[in-house]
Simulated assay, not measured.
Amino acid sequence: MEYKVKGIILHGIRYKETSLICHIYTSTFGRKTYIFNSVYKAKSKGKAAILQPLFLLDLDVFQNDKADIQRVKEFRLSYPYQSIPFDPVKSSLAFFISELLYKLLREEHPNQQLFDFLSNALLALDVLDEGVYNFHLYLMVQLTKYLGLHPTLLEEGTPAFFDLKSGHFTPIEPKHPSYMNRHLSRCFEQLYSITLTDLSTVHLTRSDRREFIDKMLEFFSIHFGGVIELKSLNVVHELFD
């Protein structure tokens, strides 16, 4: 059966000479794998160029519940980014975020709220001027709301530690090493509560950002049952250094 769906590209791999297989998070089916035939042929007029990580697409697809890879009839950009592909910081963040989502979004079930959040966040990143260096941290924290991992916050102003194992804040320092210190815990609370327009108000040093990302990856690893390692992490660290 044919469907019209919206999708966010997570990862792509070249298939044979002219085709591309992409993992896409869709509004209708959750995560799906699609084959884009003949996109590298000369007559395709650069169609492969728009199949990049985190690009937003409108797709006409054939859905076969018995098939592992679905076919694409037509596709086009939902929104042509104005800065993400050309800004070195934003494009590096896009690769980091796409790899993170590729590892985290495993379910073939629709989650319209999550899809809308991701789409709107990416559109915001494209026009964002201030606080860009905190965007990926914001997205990691916000994802907890949509993946069933959102923590219980303590009363405002209460010194706390974010316990990665329990997934909650505690006023008592945990006796195990899987937690955020008070400063990073406070930054987590800020990133959980603020909007994208206030990203520049979250103050983190380069070393803070490194540790924050490491702790968030540890948190996701604990609750998703496997170590989550990202090849793009070193690129992001080097860029910010």
Rank of each mutant, 00 (worst) to 15 (best):
P53Q: 09
A42E: 13
E2L: 01
L77D: 08
R209W: 07
G30P: 06
I21G: 08
L123E: 11
R182S: 06
L217F: 04
S83E: 05
S207C: 00
P151S: 13
F29Y: 12
K165W: 02
N134G: 04
I50Q: 05
L191P: 08
H203E: 09
L204Q: 06
Q52Y: 07
Y102L: 03
F240Y: 13
I24A: 05
V89F: 14
D214L: 05
I84C: 03
H183E: 02
R76Y: 05
L139E: 05
V72F: 10
N64V: 01
S38E: 15
L191V: 11
K32C: 15
M216E: 12
P80L: 11
H150E: 10
L191E: 12
E173D: 06
V235W: 03
L196V: 05
Y102P: 00
L105G: 11
R76L: 05
L230Y: 08
Y138F: 15
S207P: 00
L57Q: 14
E173T: 10
Y138S: 11
K32T: 04
L153N: 07
R182T: 13
Y25G: 06
Q70R: 12
G157N: 04
S200H: 11
I24K: 11
R106K: 14
F212C: 02
Y40W: 03
V39T: 04
Q52F: 07
T158I: 13
L100M: 04
L191T: 09
N64C: 00
S27L: 02
R14E: 09
A49T: 11
L114Y: 14
T144R: 02
N134D: 01
I35W: 06
L59P: 13
L122A: 04
D198A: 03
D65E: 15
R31E: 02
E155P: 01
V127P: 10
R186Q: 14
L10C: 11
L54V: 14
I50L: 07
E107Q: 15
T18L: 10
T33L: 02
E218Q: 10
Q82C: 02
L123P: 03
E211L: 15
T144P: 06
P174L: 00
V61H: 05
S78K: 05
L137R: 07
K175C: 01
A48F: 12
L54W: 14
I8S: 03
F162E: 00
F29Q: 09
F55H: 15
Q190I: 01
S178R: 07
L153T: 09
F95I: 09
F29I: 07
D198K: 01
M140N: 12
D116T: 12
L104G: 01
L139I: 13
Q82T: 11
G12I: 06
L125P: 08
L153Y: 03
V89S: 06
R106V: 13
A67V: 05
D163M: 09
I213Q: 06
Y133Q: 12
I35F: 07
D126H: 08
